[in-house]
Design a protein around this nucleic acid. Structure first.
Length: 581
RNA sequence: GGGCGCGUGGCCUAGCUGGAUAUGGCACUUGCCUCCUAAGCAAGCGGUCAAGGGUUCGAAUCCCUUCGCGCCCGCCA
């Protein structure tokens, strides 16, 4: 067995179908068609080959072609049957072989089930990277959830993934906050002493003073200048305030199972001279222009349109701008990775287009891959700090856990208090992550409490419940299933519910691969929902512990395989899989 | 004014490299706990896939136009 087969039981069947098809296609007189296999609607087989594109070439009806092809394929290996239907050639998998391969790999691989072979590709995945000036709100929370989920999926799929947070410690916002911390005296901040909440009043007040008092603005500008020119005292103070806020934000993220591997401080690129290098390269380009001492690139010929096609990269005082430093950062990321992925809000689209043009101009052939997401708004509209309409991630998490606790108490008051709290945390925070992860990134989300805290239907608790039920069966079983049960599965799993469940388990590695390749984590949420639903049907209609003879062994093995699949899928989604709830 | 994205039953959503009866959930109606956890299962209700045109044997999917929503077009980050 090859590495791929070892991890993806369905792939063997797919390859055999492709091989059989290409042989049959040559026989009917087609030899250079790309073979695409689809998933037929249920009940029509396991893989389908559409013959419609061939109709023109062969001057026959798709139906006739499908029949011709089907008649030329003799089922063998993992192919159990081939039939022509509605212009498709449908392949049925040989269930016993699929079952054997699936169960033996799943129960041997366990927490690695679903993994693809190591790709030897270094991925640097930058996500979150918000300004360290205050607590994260739910609009921003979409970024770490998408980023972390994608990172987990890609790791399982076989990539070497490093996640990174780019800390903006030289910008105006942070400088304003630092000025406030240094010069203002303000009473206790809300939310105790948590780092990301602590300096918010200072930032607000300093910001207000900047707008009212030109002298304050001047001081902030002076601080900004000092920061950019590496004044040790200013840099130190700035770093300390940023770190404090950052630590608070990370504390919040850890609650939803998000840990970031590395932090890169923006000031580094100013200090190590790489920004200057970028600037001098840009200045040499034919696209560079100057006005009032500030320099910009004219990017119209790069397809950038709008009111202004200028891209300014130095201020008139010679200091760099965020985007200039971002350019240096990207060169740095490219030097450390094979693939650089950014998770960014859709407001960054133009900026990234400009960045790509600038990379072109300075002669880099690398580009970041970008996953853009639309913002989360409230039913009343956009979240606004000024109007006080923001919902912070901390508030949402607290509320989710509280709501979950009420539900746990309703259902499981038999459990000790501590255990109920633990389940509430798992369920509440899981529900929150799932609710954001399940939606495709480009789609706007209108935040509604009742939806975010829904614990039924398409929600994390639904998935967790299926997992808990599987655990419950296994706990009560006399024997523990292992890879050796694969033979029993091949012989004894005969009914519809068992087979459909097994097929979903078998498809898991393929799904992980697809989600990783397309960089679309939400597709995993949909799959996991299907898997849990299928498990719940199985649970309802197929008794495991009351089965007889070696049927019990087969079913236990299937439950164990489904349990690992659920667990691993939930793990990719960053959701804890409780053993009871 | 220009660019990018989104628009799928009352609400949320999958499908979007064209293909077989458009996926699930919420809500609503109705059944199912002497049987491994009812955060579950089953049945029902509900769709001109924003509108119009085009390409095609075939369009939710591709192209054009229009409408609606979001985001952007700073010597901010």
């Amino acid at each position: 067995m090859t590495e791929i087969e070892n991890h993806d039981p369905f792939a063997v069947f797919r390859r055999e179908a492709e091989r059989a098809l290409s042989a049959a296609l040559v026989e009917v007189g087609v030899d250079d068609t790309e073979i695409v296999l689809e998933k037929p609607p249920k009940g029509m087989g396991d893989l389908g080959f559409p013959c419609f594109p061939l109709a023109k070439i062969l001057k026959m009806t798709p139906n006739k072609i499908a029949e011709d092809i089907a008649s030329k394929i003799t089922p063998n290996g993992t192919i159990d049957g081939v039939e022509a239907k509605g212009g498709y050639v449908n392949f049925h998998v040989r269930f016993d072989m699929l079952a054997k391969a699936t169960i033996s790999t799943a129960l041997a691989a366990r927490e690695r089930f679903g993994s693809g072979p190591s790709k030897g590709v270094k991925v640097l995945l930058e996500h979150t990277s918000v300004n360290p000036t205050g607590p994260m709100h739910i609009g921003r929370a979409r970024n770490p959830i998408i980023g972390d989920t994608l990172a987990r999926i890609m790791r399982l799929a076989g990539y070497d993934v490093l996640t990174e947070f780019y800390v903006n410690d030289v910008g105006r916002q942070v400088a304003t906050m630092t000025w406030g911390v240094k010069n203002l005296t303000i009473g206790d901040a809300p939310n105790g002493g948590k780092g990301d909440h602590r300096f918010v009043p200072y930032y607000r007040e300093a910001h207000k003073k900047c707008e009212e008092d030109p002298k304050v603005l001047e001081e902030v500008n002076a601080l900004l200048y000092k920061l950019e020119h590496g004044d040790p005292e200013s840099v130190e103070l700035n770093r300390k305030t940023s770190e404090t806020v950052l630590e608070g934000m990370m504390e919040s993220l850890r609650r939803i199972n998000i840990r970031i591997d590395g932090f890169t401080w923006e000031s580094r690129f100013v200090e190590n001279g790489s920004v200057d290098k970028v600037i001098s390269k840009l200045r040499q380009s034919e696209y560079c222009h100057e006005s009032d001492g500030a320099q910009h690139l004219e990017l119209e010929s790069f397809g950038i349109t709008g009111r202004d096609t200028k891209w300014v990269f130095t201020r008139s005082d010679g200091t760099s701008l965020y985007t200039t430093r971002d350019l240096a950062y990207h060169l740095d990321k490219f030097s450390r990775s094979d693939v650089a992925i950014n998770v960014l809000g859709e407001d960054q689209k133009l900026g990234m287009q400009q960045l790509a043009a600038a990379l072109n101009i300075i002669g880099s052939d690398r580009r970041p891959e970008i996953v853009f997401y639309a913002f989360v708004s409230l039913p009343e509209g956009r979240m606004s700090t000024r109007k006080g309409t923001v919902v912070t991630l901390d508030d949402l998490m607290d509320e989710a856990v509280d709501m979950a606790y009420e539900e746990v108490r309703k259902r499981r008051s038999d459990l000790p208090e501590e255990r109920m709290r633990e389940i509430a945390r798992t369920v509440g925070l899981g529900a929150l992550r799932y609710n954001i992860a399940r939606i495709q990134a480009e789609k706007q989300i209108v935040f509604k409490w009742e939806e975010a805290l829904n614990f039924e239907g398409s929600s994390a608790p639904f998935l967790q419940y299926a997992h808990a039920r599987a655990c419950s069966i296994l706990k009560k079983a006399d024997s523990k299933p292992g890879p050796a049960s694969a033979d029993a599965c091949a012989r004894k799993l005969v009914n519809h519910h068992e087979r459909e469940l097994l097929k979903l388990v078998a498809a898991f590695p393929m799904v992980i691969g697809e989600c990783a390749e397309t960089r679309r984590p939400h597709a995993l949420a949909a799959f996991t929902q299907d898997l849990a639903a299928q498990f719940n049907q199985f649970y309802r209609y197929v008794p495991v512990l009351k089965a007889e003879g070696d049927v019990i062994e087969a079913r236990l093995a299937l439950v164990e395989a489904a349990r690992w699949t659920l667990r691993n899928a939930l793990d990719c989604l960053g959701i804890d899989a409780p053993e009871e709830m």
